[in-house]
Design a protein around this nucleic acid. Sequence first.
DNA 1: AATACGGGGTA
DNA 2: TACCCAGTATT
Length: 400
Amino acid sequence: MDNQLQKQYFSTELLLWYERSKRDLPWRRSKNPYYIWVSEIMLQQTRVDTVIPYFHRFIEKFPTVAALAAAPESEVLKAWEGLGYYSRARNLQSAVREVHEQYNGIVPSDKAEISELKGVGPYTAGAILSIAYNQPEPAVDGNVMRVLSRYFALEDDIAKPSTRIGIERLAQGLIPAGEAGAFNQALMELGATVCTPRAPQCLTCPVQVHCAGRLAGIAEQLPVKTKAKPPRPERRAVALIVGSGAHGGQLLIRQRPQDGLLARMWELPHAELPPARSASAAEGVTPAAAPARGAQRRAARGGVPEESHDVVMAFLREHLAAADGIGIVPKAWFMNTEHVFSHILWDMFVYRCEAAAAALSSEAPNSLPPNYRWLNVNEMEEYPFPNVFLRIINEYKSLL
DNA sequence: AATACGGGGTA
DNA sequence: TACCCAGTATT
Protein backbone atom coordinates (compact mmCIF):
# COMPACT_ATOMS: atom_id res chain seq x y z
CA MET A 1 0.00 0.00 0.00
CA ASP A 2 1.09 3.52 -0.69
CA ASN A 3 2.84 4.82 2.37
CA GLN A 4 1.08 8.17 2.36
CA LEU A 5 -2.33 6.55 2.13
CA GLN A 6 -1.45 4.16 4.94
CA LYS A 7 -0.66 7.15 7.15
CA GLN A 8 -3.75 9.11 6.19
CA TYR A 9 -5.95 6.12 6.83
CA PHE A 10 -4.33 5.56 10.21
CA SER A 11 -4.82 9.10 11.49
CA THR A 12 -8.39 9.41 10.23
CA GLU A 13 -9.62 6.06 11.52
CA LEU A 14 -7.79 6.35 14.83
CA LEU A 15 -9.33 9.74 15.54
CA LEU A 16 -12.84 8.48 14.69
CA TRP A 17 -12.33 5.47 16.93
CA TYR A 18 -11.11 7.64 19.79
CA GLU A 19 -14.06 9.99 19.66
CA ARG A 20 -16.46 7.11 20.17
CA SER A 21 -14.33 4.95 22.48
CA LYS A 22 -12.37 7.23 24.79
CA ARG A 23 -12.48 6.61 28.49
CA ASP A 24 -13.86 9.19 30.85
CA LEU A 25 -10.72 10.06 32.81
CA PRO A 26 -10.58 12.81 35.43
CA TRP A 27 -7.91 14.84 33.64
CA ARG A 28 -9.89 14.73 30.41
CA ARG A 29 -12.72 16.77 31.92
CA SER A 30 -10.87 20.06 31.58
CA LYS A 31 -8.02 21.62 29.65
CA ASN A 32 -6.56 23.29 32.69
CA PRO A 33 -2.84 23.07 31.87
CA TYR A 34 -1.98 22.56 35.54
CA TYR A 35 -4.32 19.56 35.77
CA ILE A 36 -2.88 18.13 32.56
CA TRP A 37 0.63 18.66 33.86
CA VAL A 38 -0.04 16.94 37.20
CA SER A 39 -1.71 14.01 35.45
CA GLU A 40 1.13 13.57 32.98
CA ILE A 41 3.77 13.52 35.70
CA MET A 42 1.77 10.98 37.70
CA LEU A 43 1.25 8.84 34.62
CA GLN A 44 4.97 8.46 33.94
CA GLN A 45 5.68 4.73 34.26
CA THR A 46 2.39 4.38 36.13
CA ARG A 47 -0.95 2.90 35.12
CA VAL A 48 -4.09 4.95 34.71
CA ASP A 49 -6.00 2.98 37.33
CA THR A 50 -3.26 3.58 39.88
CA VAL A 51 -3.14 7.31 39.17
CA ILE A 52 -6.85 8.15 39.33
CA PRO A 53 -7.28 8.25 43.13
CA TYR A 54 -3.95 10.06 43.57
CA PHE A 55 -4.95 12.64 40.98
CA HIS A 56 -8.24 13.41 42.74
CA ARG A 57 -6.59 13.77 46.14
CA PHE A 58 -3.71 15.82 44.77
CA ILE A 59 -5.88 18.33 42.93
CA GLU A 60 -8.18 18.64 45.92
CA LYS A 61 -5.24 19.35 48.20
CA PHE A 62 -3.27 21.50 45.73
CA PRO A 63 -5.91 22.96 43.37
CA THR A 64 -3.71 25.55 41.71
CA VAL A 65 -0.14 26.36 40.79
CA ALA A 66 -0.09 28.84 43.66
CA ALA A 67 -1.32 26.25 46.15
CA LEU A 68 1.28 23.68 45.18
CA ALA A 69 4.01 26.31 45.12
CA ALA A 70 3.19 27.33 48.66
CA ALA A 71 2.96 23.84 50.17
CA PRO A 72 5.67 22.27 52.35
CA GLU A 73 7.56 19.61 50.44
CA SER A 74 6.69 16.99 53.05
CA GLU A 75 2.99 17.47 52.30
CA VAL A 76 3.63 16.98 48.61
CA LEU A 77 5.60 13.82 49.25
CA LYS A 78 2.85 12.61 51.56
CA ALA A 79 0.32 13.12 48.75
CA TRP A 80 2.64 11.09 46.50
CA GLU A 81 3.17 8.36 49.09
CA GLY A 82 2.89 4.92 47.48
CA LEU A 83 3.04 6.22 43.92
CA GLY A 84 6.79 5.76 43.56
CA TYR A 85 9.48 7.66 41.69
CA TYR A 86 9.36 10.41 44.29
CA SER A 87 11.69 12.69 42.36
CA ARG A 88 8.64 13.27 40.17
CA ALA A 89 6.89 14.94 43.10
CA ARG A 90 9.93 16.96 44.16
CA ASN A 91 10.64 18.06 40.58
CA LEU A 92 6.98 18.88 39.96
CA GLN A 93 6.83 21.18 42.94
CA SER A 94 10.14 22.77 42.01
CA ALA A 95 8.90 23.39 38.48
CA VAL A 96 5.54 24.67 39.70
CA ARG A 97 7.36 27.17 41.91
CA GLU A 98 9.31 28.26 38.84
CA VAL A 99 6.07 28.74 36.90
CA HIS A 100 4.54 30.61 39.84
CA GLU A 101 7.46 33.01 40.08
CA GLN A 102 8.76 33.37 36.53
CA TYR A 103 5.59 32.92 34.48
CA ASN A 104 3.01 34.50 36.76
CA GLY A 105 1.48 31.10 37.40
CA ILE A 106 0.77 30.44 33.73
CA VAL A 107 2.07 27.10 32.45
CA PRO A 108 4.27 28.00 29.45
CA SER A 109 2.91 27.16 26.02
CA ASP A 110 6.34 27.58 24.45
CA LYS A 111 8.17 24.34 23.76
CA ALA A 112 11.60 25.58 24.82
CA GLU A 113 10.27 27.17 28.00
CA ILE A 114 8.19 24.21 29.13
CA SER A 115 11.00 21.79 28.30
CA GLU A 116 13.31 23.58 30.72
CA LEU A 117 11.06 22.82 33.67
CA LYS A 118 12.30 20.09 36.02
CA GLY A 119 10.75 16.73 35.32
CA VAL A 120 9.40 17.77 31.92
CA GLY A 121 11.07 15.69 29.25
CA PRO A 122 10.21 15.24 25.57
CA TYR A 123 7.11 13.13 26.24
CA THR A 124 5.62 15.38 28.91
CA ALA A 125 6.37 18.58 27.00
CA GLY A 126 4.59 17.19 23.93
CA ALA A 127 1.67 15.91 26.02
CA ILE A 128 1.03 19.23 27.75
CA LEU A 129 1.52 21.29 24.60
CA SER A 130 -0.80 19.11 22.55
CA ILE A 131 -3.48 18.31 25.12
CA ALA A 132 -3.70 21.65 26.94
CA TYR A 133 -2.75 23.98 24.08
CA ASN A 134 -3.48 21.82 21.02
CA GLN A 135 -0.05 22.45 19.57
CA PRO A 136 1.05 19.95 16.88
CA GLU A 137 3.78 18.32 19.00
CA PRO A 138 4.22 14.54 19.27
CA ALA A 139 3.92 12.83 22.66
CA VAL A 140 5.73 9.54 22.34
CA ASP A 141 5.50 7.16 25.27
CA GLY A 142 5.74 3.39 25.49
CA ASN A 143 2.24 2.96 24.08
CA VAL A 144 2.99 5.07 21.05
CA MET A 145 6.25 3.29 20.32
CA ARG A 146 4.47 -0.05 20.49
CA VAL A 147 1.51 1.01 18.32
CA LEU A 148 3.63 2.61 15.63
CA SER A 149 6.21 -0.18 15.68
CA ARG A 150 3.42 -2.61 14.91
CA TYR A 151 1.44 -0.55 12.46
CA PHE A 152 4.50 0.26 10.36
CA ALA A 153 6.30 -3.01 11.18
CA LEU A 154 9.33 -1.19 12.55
CA GLU A 155 11.96 -3.49 13.99
CA ASP A 156 14.19 -0.90 15.63
CA ASP A 157 14.95 -1.47 19.29
CA ILE A 158 12.67 0.88 21.22
CA ALA A 159 15.06 0.81 24.17
CA LYS A 160 17.43 2.98 22.12
CA PRO A 161 16.99 6.75 22.37
CA SER A 162 17.61 7.05 18.65
CA THR A 163 14.53 4.94 17.99
CA ARG A 164 12.38 7.22 20.11
CA ILE A 165 13.65 10.21 18.12
CA GLY A 166 12.69 8.53 14.88
CA ILE A 167 9.25 7.60 16.12
CA GLU A 168 8.71 11.16 17.30
CA ARG A 169 9.37 12.37 13.78
CA LEU A 170 6.99 9.78 12.42
CA ALA A 171 4.31 10.64 14.99
CA GLN A 172 4.58 14.35 14.28
CA GLY A 173 3.84 13.68 10.64
CA LEU A 174 0.68 11.78 11.54
CA ILE A 175 -1.02 14.56 13.51
CA PRO A 176 -4.18 15.74 11.73
CA ALA A 177 -4.48 19.51 11.43
CA GLY A 178 -6.02 21.04 14.53
CA GLU A 179 -6.35 17.67 16.29
CA ALA A 180 -3.04 17.25 18.06
CA GLY A 181 -4.46 16.74 21.54
CA ALA A 182 -7.10 14.24 20.53
CA PHE A 183 -4.76 12.40 18.19
CA ASN A 184 -1.95 11.98 20.70
CA GLN A 185 -4.37 10.72 23.31
CA ALA A 186 -5.95 8.40 20.75
CA LEU A 187 -2.57 6.85 20.02
CA MET A 188 -1.94 6.20 23.69
CA GLU A 189 -5.50 5.02 24.27
CA LEU A 190 -5.16 2.44 21.51
CA GLY A 191 -1.93 1.17 23.02
CA ALA A 192 -3.44 0.98 26.49
CA THR A 193 -6.71 -0.73 25.58
CA VAL A 194 -6.34 -2.56 22.24
CA CYS A 195 -2.76 -2.73 21.00
CA THR A 196 -1.57 -4.12 24.34
CA PRO A 197 1.96 -5.44 25.01
CA ARG A 198 0.80 -9.04 25.00
CA ALA A 199 -2.18 -10.55 23.23
CA PRO A 200 -3.14 -7.44 21.24
CA GLN A 201 -6.82 -7.41 20.29
CA CYS A 202 -6.26 -6.96 16.58
CA LEU A 203 -9.78 -8.05 15.71
CA THR A 204 -11.25 -5.00 17.42
CA CYS A 205 -8.55 -2.60 16.24
CA PRO A 206 -9.80 0.37 14.19
CA VAL A 207 -6.72 0.29 11.95
CA GLN A 208 -6.23 -3.46 11.60
CA VAL A 209 -6.72 -3.67 7.84
CA HIS A 210 -3.57 -1.65 7.07
CA CYS A 211 -1.46 -2.70 10.05
CA ALA A 212 1.81 -3.91 8.53
CA GLY A 213 2.76 -5.81 11.66
CA ARG A 214 -0.48 -7.76 11.71
CA LEU A 215 -0.39 -8.38 7.95
CA ALA A 216 3.15 -9.74 8.29
CA GLY A 217 2.07 -11.89 11.22
CA ILE A 218 4.63 -10.32 13.54
CA ALA A 219 2.46 -7.96 15.60
CA GLU A 220 2.97 -9.96 18.76
CA GLN A 221 6.73 -9.99 18.25
CA LEU A 222 6.82 -6.21 18.11
CA PRO A 223 8.11 -3.92 19.37
CA VAL A 224 11.69 -5.11 19.60
CA LYS A 225 13.09 -4.15 22.98
CA THR A 226 16.27 -5.24 24.76
CA LYS A 227 15.35 -6.55 28.15
CA ALA A 228 16.37 -4.87 31.36
CA LYS A 229 18.97 -6.24 33.72
CA PRO A 230 17.50 -8.07 36.70
CA PRO A 231 17.62 -6.18 40.01
CA ARG A 232 20.62 -6.81 42.21
CA PRO A 233 19.75 -8.54 45.50
CA GLU A 234 20.39 -6.87 48.84
CA ARG A 235 19.69 -8.23 52.31
CA ARG A 236 18.65 -5.79 54.98
CA ALA A 237 18.08 -6.09 58.71
CA VAL A 238 15.31 -3.76 59.85
CA ALA A 239 14.75 -2.44 63.37
CA LEU A 240 11.16 -2.03 64.52
CA ILE A 241 12.05 -0.01 67.62
CA VAL A 242 9.13 0.11 70.02
CA GLY A 243 9.10 2.89 72.57
CA SER A 244 8.10 2.60 76.19
CA GLY A 245 7.64 4.99 79.08
CA ALA A 246 7.57 8.50 77.68
CA HIS A 247 7.64 6.97 74.20
CA GLY A 248 4.94 4.38 74.78
CA GLY A 249 2.95 3.65 71.63
CA GLN A 250 5.68 5.12 69.46
CA LEU A 251 8.16 3.81 66.90
CA LEU A 252 11.60 5.22 66.18
CA ILE A 253 11.88 6.35 62.56
CA ARG A 254 14.42 8.26 60.52
CA GLN A 255 14.49 10.40 57.40
CA ARG A 256 16.50 9.25 54.40
CA PRO A 257 19.24 11.39 52.85
CA GLN A 258 18.48 14.38 50.63
CA ASP A 259 19.50 12.58 47.46
CA GLY A 260 19.29 9.15 45.94
CA LEU A 261 16.88 6.30 46.48
CA LEU A 262 13.67 7.38 48.24
CA ALA A 263 15.24 10.76 48.97
CA ARG A 264 13.81 12.56 52.01
CA MET A 265 11.26 9.83 52.69
CA TRP A 266 10.97 8.33 56.19
CA GLU A 267 11.77 4.76 57.10
CA LEU A 268 12.47 2.28 59.84
CA PRO A 269 16.17 2.17 60.71
CA HIS A 270 17.89 -0.65 58.88
CA ALA A 271 21.28 -1.92 57.80
CA GLU A 272 22.51 -3.84 54.81
CA LEU A 273 23.72 -7.34 55.60
CA PRO A 274 26.67 -8.96 53.82
CA PRO A 275 25.61 -10.64 50.57
CA ALA A 276 24.08 -14.05 50.92
CA ARG A 277 26.32 -17.01 50.26
CA SER A 278 25.10 -18.03 46.80
CA ALA A 279 23.89 -21.59 46.44
CA SER A 280 26.06 -22.18 43.41
CA ALA A 281 29.22 -20.97 45.12
CA ALA A 282 28.48 -22.89 48.27
CA GLU A 283 27.85 -26.18 46.56
CA GLY A 284 30.26 -25.76 43.74
CA VAL A 285 27.63 -26.25 41.10
CA THR A 286 27.47 -24.42 37.83
CA PRO A 287 25.19 -21.42 37.55
CA ALA A 288 23.00 -23.31 35.14
CA ALA A 289 22.36 -25.97 37.76
CA ALA A 290 21.77 -23.49 40.55
CA PRO A 291 18.22 -22.99 41.79
CA ALA A 292 16.34 -20.07 40.34
CA ARG A 293 16.69 -16.84 42.26
CA GLY A 294 13.03 -17.12 43.16
CA ALA A 295 13.68 -20.34 44.99
CA GLN A 296 16.45 -18.70 46.98
CA ARG A 297 14.13 -15.84 47.80
CA ARG A 298 11.45 -18.18 49.02
CA ALA A 299 14.01 -19.79 51.28
CA ALA A 300 14.79 -16.40 52.79
CA ARG A 301 11.14 -15.52 53.19
CA GLY A 302 10.49 -18.73 55.04
CA GLY A 303 11.58 -17.35 58.38
CA VAL A 304 15.32 -17.07 58.86
CA PRO A 305 18.23 -15.44 57.14
CA GLU A 306 21.27 -17.65 56.61
CA GLU A 307 22.72 -16.41 59.87
CA SER A 308 20.87 -17.14 63.07
CA HIS A 309 18.58 -14.44 64.35
CA ASP A 310 21.02 -13.81 67.17
CA VAL A 311 23.80 -12.99 64.74
CA VAL A 312 21.61 -10.65 62.71
CA MET A 313 20.28 -8.92 65.82
CA ALA A 314 23.82 -8.32 67.05
CA PHE A 315 24.76 -6.96 63.65
CA LEU A 316 21.79 -4.61 63.70
CA ARG A 317 22.54 -3.33 67.19
CA GLU A 318 26.21 -2.73 66.39
CA HIS A 319 25.48 -1.04 63.09
CA LEU A 320 22.98 1.43 64.49
CA ALA A 321 25.29 2.24 67.39
CA ALA A 322 28.29 2.83 65.14
CA ALA A 323 26.57 4.58 62.25
CA ASP A 324 23.97 6.72 64.03
CA GLY A 325 24.79 6.52 67.73
CA ILE A 326 21.47 4.83 68.41
CA GLY A 327 21.32 2.42 71.31
CA ILE A 328 18.85 -0.41 70.75
CA VAL A 329 18.19 -3.83 72.18
CA PRO A 330 16.87 -6.24 69.55
CA LYS A 331 14.36 -8.59 71.14
CA ALA A 332 12.92 -11.00 68.57
CA TRP A 333 12.37 -11.71 64.92
CA PHE A 334 9.16 -10.01 63.76
CA MET A 335 8.64 -10.69 60.04
CA ASN A 336 10.36 -11.01 56.70
CA THR A 337 9.34 -9.09 53.64
CA GLU A 338 10.62 -8.53 50.15
CA HIS A 339 10.58 -5.36 48.15
CA VAL A 340 11.40 -5.06 44.46
CA PHE A 341 12.60 -1.81 42.95
CA SER A 342 13.35 -1.70 39.26
CA HIS A 343 17.08 -2.02 39.96
CA ILE A 344 17.34 -3.44 43.51
CA LEU A 345 15.67 -6.32 45.33
CA TRP A 346 15.49 -6.02 49.10
CA ASP A 347 15.20 -9.15 51.21
CA MET A 348 14.29 -7.71 54.58
CA PHE A 349 14.47 -9.32 58.00
CA VAL A 350 12.56 -7.28 60.55
CA TYR A 351 13.29 -7.43 64.30
CA ARG A 352 11.29 -6.01 67.15
CA CYS A 353 13.61 -3.91 69.28
CA GLU A 354 13.54 -1.69 72.33
CA ALA A 355 15.47 1.48 72.93
CA ALA A 356 18.50 1.05 75.17
CA ALA A 357 18.19 2.54 78.62
CA ALA A 358 20.26 5.60 77.72
CA ALA A 359 17.88 6.60 74.98
CA LEU A 360 15.01 6.45 77.45
CA SER A 361 16.71 8.49 80.09
CA SER A 362 15.05 11.77 80.89
CA GLU A 363 18.54 13.18 81.36
CA ALA A 364 19.23 12.88 77.62
CA PRO A 365 15.90 13.37 75.89
CA ASN A 366 17.44 15.11 72.92
CA SER A 367 20.21 12.66 72.17
CA LEU A 368 18.66 11.48 68.91
CA PRO A 369 20.37 12.40 65.66
CA PRO A 370 18.51 15.17 63.81
CA ASN A 371 17.05 12.81 61.21
CA TYR A 372 15.47 10.56 63.85
CA ARG A 373 12.01 10.99 65.41
CA TRP A 374 9.68 9.12 67.68
CA LEU A 375 6.52 8.51 65.69
CA ASN A 376 3.06 8.08 67.15
CA VAL A 377 1.79 5.17 65.11
CA ASN A 378 -1.70 6.63 64.96
CA GLU A 379 -0.46 9.99 63.71
CA MET A 380 1.56 9.28 60.61
CA GLU A 381 0.22 12.00 58.35
CA GLU A 382 3.27 14.24 58.59
CA TYR A 383 5.72 11.59 57.52
CA PRO A 384 5.79 10.15 53.98
CA PHE A 385 6.91 6.52 53.95
CA PRO A 386 7.76 4.24 51.04
CA ASN A 387 5.33 1.35 50.72
CA VAL A 388 7.80 -1.22 51.94
CA PHE A 389 7.93 0.42 55.38
CA LEU A 390 4.20 1.14 55.42
CA ARG A 391 3.64 -2.59 55.03
CA ILE A 392 5.80 -3.36 58.05
CA ILE A 393 4.27 -0.62 60.20
CA ASN A 394 0.75 -1.64 59.25
CA GLU A 395 1.54 -5.24 60.14
CA TYR A 396 2.73 -4.03 63.53
CA LYS A 397 -0.36 -1.86 64.04
CA SER A 398 -2.65 -4.75 63.15
CA LEU A 399 -1.17 -6.73 66.04
CA LEU A 400 -1.60 -4.00 68.65
C1' DA B 1 24.67 4.49 25.91
C1' DA B 2 23.88 2.94 30.45
C1' DT B 3 22.08 3.44 34.91
C1' DA B 4 19.22 5.30 38.79
C1' DC B 5 14.80 5.85 40.14
C1' DG B 6 8.96 2.77 42.87
C1' DG B 7 5.41 0.20 42.75
C1' DG B 8 1.98 -2.63 40.92
C1' DG B 9 -0.98 -5.07 37.25
C1' DT B 10 -1.28 -9.02 34.28
C1' DA B 11 -0.66 -13.19 31.27
C1' DT C 1 7.74 -15.38 36.77
C1' DA C 2 8.47 -11.85 33.11
C1' DC C 3 7.12 -7.88 31.19
C1' DC C 4 5.94 -3.27 31.21
C1' DC C 5 3.48 0.77 32.47
C1' DA C 6 0.98 8.21 29.35
C1' DG C 7 9.63 8.70 31.40
C1' DT C 8 13.34 11.83 33.21
C1' DA C 9 17.82 12.96 35.01
C1' DT C 10 22.39 11.87 35.49
C1' DT C 11 26.68 9.96 34.28
